[in-house]
Design a protein around this nucleic acid. Structure first.
Length: 655
RNA sequence: GCCGGGGUAGCUCAGUGGCAGAGCAACCGCCUUGUAAGCGGUAGGUCGUGGGUUCAAUCCCCACCCUCGGCUCCA
């Protein structure tokens, strides 16, 4: 017997090798390395391909063990749990059709169609989760099999959605989701985890359902089949699944924390703004405390733009339909615009964007190349008809204000301008405590775009060059550009690590064309400028909502609606407290006083719940010595602080 | 727009085909307070809006508005 026949050799990720008996599986390999690894293993990667743990390893393969506590491992857990969900539903609901059930961030979902268009209730979820637990307890093995498409169609003859996927894969017009579900056209793969249930799936899966168990069904929602609005609406069940009980508990805790930071909840609690029903959906009114924060944000934006070489403009909220015909908005976005108003001299629309009006300002007189780049800036309020089901607090709203700028420049100036814009954007965002940014370059969609290849290439190159000059990592979204030009979108990460898209920088050579914009170049020729659209906050309303969630309502001192609250220990100290308020107010701070009707502890609690950065307590000692007791948000109480010293500290904090 | 929840006091929520409930907040007293809830009392609601069923509707039915979770969409 040769050596090759008696053992096989596989290579591990650390470049070491391991000898195993022929026919050994990934699980055997994991066991040979250690018991804990074997327990944590959920799949293998064999020569770069994710595979089942019970697949025999080929001699000479590079093998990695995927453990449950890795991203890839959790993905496998979640995908397998989705199968268990489908099995539970099929067992509990006779005649249920199941369609797709992928792993997603933090969990999984599965889409179903119930007979007679029935829907799942919350009680159903409880029952389904119970049934899933039984399947897990039964420790059913996941058994992979491959078959021809014809065999698969026969196997799933009662499952129309599965048949559609198989047919798509067979015809070669599968999208990535289909491939995930079914494997390839040559060999359709299925996983059977009991007599009762078999599902189309590429895999891999955990060896058996007993490996699962730390999951929870979260919610049920409608979802269109294949995301097609005109297609049937299925019932989607969302769940979450983790490698351990504690990981699941942590996830649920994170959700609770995020809920506490919900900007809609904080806006009510902190009396910042509201959405009165009488006003209509997606329209907000700003209360004094919210308005002061918004004003501070806008003031800061204006100051930065003033110093950044921008010229301020103002434009009206309405415009004649002709303007939006010229700009192309009526052609491309009529459905997203508020309906027209008939007036004696024409038809008017609320504006969905500011750019057409800025173009009119540019075109009002002849421009020279010496004026470029010309940067027009406006906090411009626009109205967009967002469909009712899409409204979401401040984040998706029908009337909002853009910190909007249009920069008219030459082709040659484009790259420099975008480069300095990136600096400007990040510098402004950093002031609000954002330190992590993700960049996305969206490129041309051949079907939905205007303009020559050459100009698109130039614009895309300019954006890419600007990103590269900064050395920023970025992702590319092919085909996601606006119809008029490519763009860079910037996401920020908030204090909980969540991503929010805020800023956008877009190249546009369509509007200059449509409006016939020109400048006189140095060679005396009439030349078309390039237009850059850019917004930093995007929408002030949305940015405010993101900030609220980012800070959890605890605005930094420079933005806090009330920066300092003064509390007298007893009535005898109220007039001294008033003096302190007076002095701080004269120093330019937002200060108030809560008189001593209630006990001190209760007033402190109330002030803390309002997230006021500094609570000052003054009593006998302070009155005598012109001092204050300082109770800072999230810090230690200090007694007997001189008022002048406190003002210095406040100044330093506000920066 | 589509699917499924929901709308009761300022807030968070309970409740019933037959007089509308709690806690917190508010207001009024008492307490005069030294760092996160002192005590007592009072007031507060067209039960989202409009129709319908019923002797009687906050409750059941229909429509609409608003809202929540998703889907779709997002210049």
């Amino acid at each position: 017997m040769t050596k090759a026949a008696s053992t096989i050799t596989v290579r591990l990720p650390d470049e070491s090798t391991c000898e195993l008996a022929p026919g050994s599986t990934g699980l055997d390999l994991a066991s040979s390395i250690g018991r804990r690894l074997a327990q944590a293993a959920v799949a293998t990667v064999i020569d770069g391909v994710e595979s089942d743990l019970n697949l025999p390893l080929p001699d000479g393969a590079s093998v990695a063990i995927v453990t449950a506590d890795s991203d890839a491992g959790r993905h496998v857990l979640r995908h397998s749990t989705a199968h268990v969900l489908a099995q539970a539903v099929v067992q509990l609901f006779v005649g249920a059709k199941f369609s797709i059930g992928p792993a997603i961030e933090d969990g999984f979902y599965y889409d179903f169609e119930l007979p007679g268009g029935k829907t799942f209730s919350d009680d159903d979820l409880v029952a389904i989760q119970g049934q899933m637990q039984k399947i897990v307890d039964a420790d059913q093995p996941f058994v992979r099999a491959e078959m021809t498409a014809k065999e698969a169609l026969q196997l799933f003859k009662d499952q129309p959605y599965k048949c559609e996927i198989i047919e798509r894969v067979t015809k070669g017009d599968a999208d990535p989701t289909d491939s995930l579900e079914a494997g390839s056209a040559d060999a359709v793969s299925v996983y059977r985890n009991s007599e009762a249930f078999v599902d189309l799936c590429r895999g891999p899966h955990v060896p058996s359902t007993g490996r699962l168990g730390h999951f929870a069904l979260m919610k049920v929602a409608g979802a269109y089949w294949r995301g097609n609005e005109k297609g049937p609406m299925l019932q989607r069940i969302y769940g979450t699944a983790w490698e351990s009980k504690s990981a699941l508990a942590e996830h649920l805790h994170r959700l609770e924390e995020a809920e506490k930071r919900d900007h809609r909840r904080l806006a009510v609690e902190m009396d910042l703004l509201s959405f009165p029903q009488e006003l209509g959906g997606g329209l907000a009114v700003w209360h004094p405390k919210g308005a002061i924060v918004r004003k501070l944000i806008e003031d800061y934006s204006r100051e930065r733009h003033q110093n950044g070489g921008y010229k301020f403009v103002f434009t009206p909220h309405l415009a004649n339909a002709h303007l939006f015909e010229t700009s192309g908005h009526l052609q491309f976005y009529k459905d997203g615009m508020y309906p027209p108003m008939e007036m004696d001299n024409g038809v008017y629309f609320p504006k969905p964007m500011n750019c057409p009006m800025h173009c009119l300002i540019y075109r009002d007189r002849q421009r020279s190349y010496r004026e470029l780049p010309l940067r027009l800036f406006e906090l411009g309020t626009v109205y967009r008809y967002e469909r009712a089901g899409t409204l979401h607090g401040l984040l998706r709203i029908r009337g909002f204000t853009q910190d909007d700028s249009h920069i008219f420049c030459t082709e040659q100036q484009m790259a420099d301008e975008i480069t300095s814009l990136l600096d400007f954007v990040l510098s402004v965002l950093r002031r609000f405590g954002f330190t992590e940014f993700d960049f996305k370059l969206s490129t041309r969609n051949a079907e939905k775009s205007l303009g020559s290849d050459a100009i698109w290439q130039k614009a895309t190159d300019a954006l890419t060059e600007a990103l590269n000059r900064h050395g920023f990592q970025y992702s590319v979204s092919p085909g996601d550009a606006a119809f008029y030009g490519p763009k860079i979108d910037i996401d920020v990460r908030d204090a909980l690590g969540r991503k929010w898209q805020l800023s956008t920088i877009q190249c546009d050579f369509n509007l200059p064309e449509r409006f016939g914009l020109e400048y006189i170049a140095s060679d005396n020729s009439r030349t078309r400028p390039i237009m850059l659209h850019r917004a930093l906050f995007g929408s002030i309303e949305r940015f405010f909502g993101v900030l609220l969630e980012h800070y959890g309502g605890a605005f930094p001192t420079w933005l806090a609606p009330v920066q300092v609250r003064v509390l007298a220990v007893a009535s005898a100290h109220e007039s001294y407290a008033a003096q302190v308020v007076d002095q701080l107010t004269k120093s330019g701070y937002r200060v108030d006083q809560l008189v001593a009707d209630e006990q001190l502890g209760k007033r402190i609690r109330a002030s803390k719940l309002e997230r006021i950065p500094y609570v000052l307590v003054v009593g006998d000692d302070d009155l005598k010595n012109s001092t204050v007791g300082v109770n800072p948000r999230g810090g230690e109480v200090r007694r007997d602080v001189g008022l002048a010293k406190f003002i210095d500290q406040l100044a330093a904090d506000v920066g």
